[in-house]
Nucleic acid binder design. Sequence first.
DNA 1: GTCTATATACGGATAGAC
DNA 2: GTCTATCCGTATATAGAC
Lengths: 227, 227
Amino acid sequence: MTYAEFSRVVTISKKDIYQETIAENRETMRVKKEKTVFKNLERIFGAVLKISNRKGFKAMSMRDLSRESGLSMGALYTYFSSKDELLEMLQNQQRSISQRILRQRVSEEQTVAAKLKAAIFTHLYLSEAMQPWYYFSFMEAKNLNKIERDKAVASDLHLEKVFEDIIEQGNLEGGFSTPNSQLTASIIQAMLQDWYLKRYKYAKRGISVDQYAEFVMDLIKKYLSPA
Amino acid sequence: MTYAEFSRVVTISKKDIYQETIAENRETMRVKKEKTVFKNLERIFGAVLKISNRKGFKAMSMRDLSRESGLSMGALYTYFSSKDELLEMLQNQQRSISQRILRQRVSEEQTVAAKLKAAIFTHLYLSEAMQPWYYFSFMEAKNLNKIERDKAVASDLHLEKVFEDIIEQGNLEGGFSTPNSQLTASIIQAMLQDWYLKRYKYAKRGISVDQYAEFVMDLIKKYLSPA
DNA sequence: GTCTATATACGGATAGAC
DNA sequence: GTCTATCCGTATATAGAC
């Protein structure tokens, strides 16, 4: 599966996610025409990501958001009850869609080598398709309250565990060799993270997500192959 | 040189850096007893890093800073003319001390293998000794004005270039082998970055900076060794 | 359902006393 | 050199008209 094919999967899933967001926030977002909510949520989230990723969520005023989204301040507050809640909504969305897709794609593969490749490629494809969300989630996690921040940390560790389990399995089967599966997983995660944290750099150099994925894959394969 | 030895070098250099900060901001920080400025700058910078790294520079109010540093609002403003200038001062400090030490340590080595090892270890040691600064610089770069933000990006690229040049040289000499020196340098930088971005995680697991450095070194050596 | 206008509080910065 | 008290702009959030 190339990135072009993959991105269609994500687009479809995004619709589901919005529906969930609406369902989870029934109290704040009272019954409204589905279509209106949809259109406005998309405008709001898009505007938040655009402004926040340039100057930070805290520095984004509700007036900024009103201007960029085309909705009045009053209208904005019918979709969330506070600026903090808005932040939470964005973070939760990103996590739930990502975890679901990654889990599914990895489980479809049989061998550890294939699973590792699927995990690396899928995560990179996800962060490519949803780069603003990934960047936002990383940079704004410290603005969350303790409960929500803990969820963000847990999600990060969960991803690491996916890699760790695959590597550990490979170690047992003999296909991989490393003295420290957890640290290897952690380092892989760091490499994948760079793709969305330093996007501007890679874009300017014309490196595609597929090239990046192949490079990481090659490096990890060389490292993990038994001497 | 172990980390224990290294950290003494940094401590000494920090004094120089403060002196530079004072010299560069002569207009704002009028003539004061050297000793007073020193003590207060240390309190201020320490407090900024502590508060900002928890909830972000933008979310830190001057009243927060006043409380944490033990200086009144009025006193604070005798050391900088605006909150933005305070941010710049911290960013510049971190960069100048880091670049100076790294450049020197790398130039002391003769072979590419030794230079690569020196660059990796020194950068990790630096980010260990000054973790709050590194974390702060990374997370708060987007709050800088365009000119200062460009300097931050340039500094990032400068570090990458140090790695790239060493690897390229190794490629030519035949000691290393990679199809893309720049991408390799970029990936190394991502791995080093993780040490200060995910500090809490490594600390909780009891991974020391020396263990981390050895692990990264081993991974990179395996990758770069010609097949 | 969405707008405008506004309540209320909190932000950065400074004036003037000591 | 440092403190306290305060200015004044801008922030979030909401009330009430349409």
